[in-house]
């Protein structure tokens, strides 16, 4: 089973995603960037999903930090801002895809499938 790391400060959302995708993927969720970094020191997931806004660090800063030691792991950004589409132009080299909130579960599944498969 492929491993997905989700860093999202909304616990409820994390919970829903875990419930939805838990059958197909091994989901690990954190609400803080710090926790995610610690985890990534030990484990290497198949996909990382990062919220743009986290309590302790921005998603983009976290992205850069992860890229330093995991240059190849696919990362998907998740945002509540529409403007990310513009920013994506800049970050696209480092990012596999992005999804805008409110999340349509089918869309999320399709995108994940596209990146790492079943």
């Amino acid at each position: 089973m492929k491993k997905i790391l989700i860093v999202e400060d909304e616990e409820l959302m994390l919970d829903i995603i875990k419930d939805t995708l838990g059958k197909k993927y091994e989901i690990k969720g954190f609400t803080l960037g710090k926790q995610a970094l610690e985890y990534l020191q030990k484990e290497q997931p198949d996909l990382v999903i990062l919220d743009i806004k986290l309590p302790d660090i921005t998603g983009l800063e976290l992205l850069e930090k992860i890229r330093k030691f995991l240059p190849k792991v696919p990362i998907m950004m998740c945002t509540a801002y529409d403007s990310f589409k513009t920013d994506y132009q800049i970050w696209s080299a480092n990012v596999a895809d992005y999804i805008v909130k409110p999340i349509v579960l089918e869309e999320l599944e399709t995108k994940i499938k596209k990146i790492i498969g079943e």
């Binding site: 909304e10 959302m13 509540a80 409110p102």
Partner: peptide, 21 residues
Amino acid sequence: AAVVTHEVRNPLSTIYMSAQI
């Protein structure tokens, strides 16, 4: 709007996803 969007969209997203399920 930026603040509201972020703060509204997160709970909105949760409601939306729950409804979808």
